[in-house]
């Protein structure tokens, strides 16, 4: 019963632990063979910041790590004319590069700007939640490598998982809830 249960992979993110060290960025690139060659638009995950805010000496700075939200209601899948963007067995949004005609509509439809054209495969690319690692029981590379474990990864359908426990105990929010995308990234508040 448990083994056949459908998974709902999610990430719970505690941005307040992030100190912008870029380990997630480099681990992702090495894991997934993404050679940006200095191109700042080539990345599957990212850390945003509005920079140092305020006036000396009253300052603050926040960092917000993010990536493809693995939406349960993904606009990119709806708009894809060739079904290159699709939901896999676990309900994760994936791209079948062989079907992608690089029309770019999915890039425009994504409210999170999570997609880019890969200079390597020449088709659209984005975070896969490292589904090749999930398949062998590992965590996504960004989760695994993070010094402070900002990201917690797990199955929300399992009430015993750490992600379930975290979301039961803490206040959280999702990014751009009004777009109706039902993201799988939950930010603790």
């Amino acid at each position: 019963m448990t083994e056949n249960r459908k998974k709902r992979w999610v990430m719970v993110i505690d941005s307040r632990k992030c100190f912008d060290c870029k380990a997630c960025d480099v681990a992702c690139k090495r894991e997934n063979g993404i050679e940006a060659k200095g191109n700042r638009d080539v990345y599957r995950n990212w850390i945003t910041s509005r920079g140092i805010e305020g006036t000396f000496p009253n300052l603050k700075q926040r960092f917000e790590p993010s990536q493809c939200q693995q939406c349960a209601n993904p606009p990119c899948v709806r708009v894809c004319p060739t079904r290159a963007s699709h939901l896999d067995r676990d309900g994760l949004v994936q791209i079948d590069g062989r079907r992608c005609i690089v029309c770019g509509v999915c890039i425009l439809s994504c409210p999170y700007d999570a997609r880019f054209k890969s200079p390597q495969t020449k088709v659209i690319d984005k975070c896969t939640f490292c589904n090749h690692r999930i398949a062998v029981g590992k965590q996504p590379a960004c989760v695994d490598t993070c010094p402070t474990k900002v990201r917690v990864f797990g199955d929300l359908n399992d009430p015993e998982s750490e992600v379930s426990r975290l979301l039961a105990r803490h206040h959280y929010f999702v990014l751009k809830p009004k777009s109706g995308t039902q993201p799988s990234l939950f930010y603790l508040s």
Partner: peptide, 8 residues
């Protein structure tokens, strides 16, 4: 290579 990761 502009089209592939050197490691791959």
């Amino acid at each position: 290579l502009d089209s592939e990761d050197r490691h791959r």
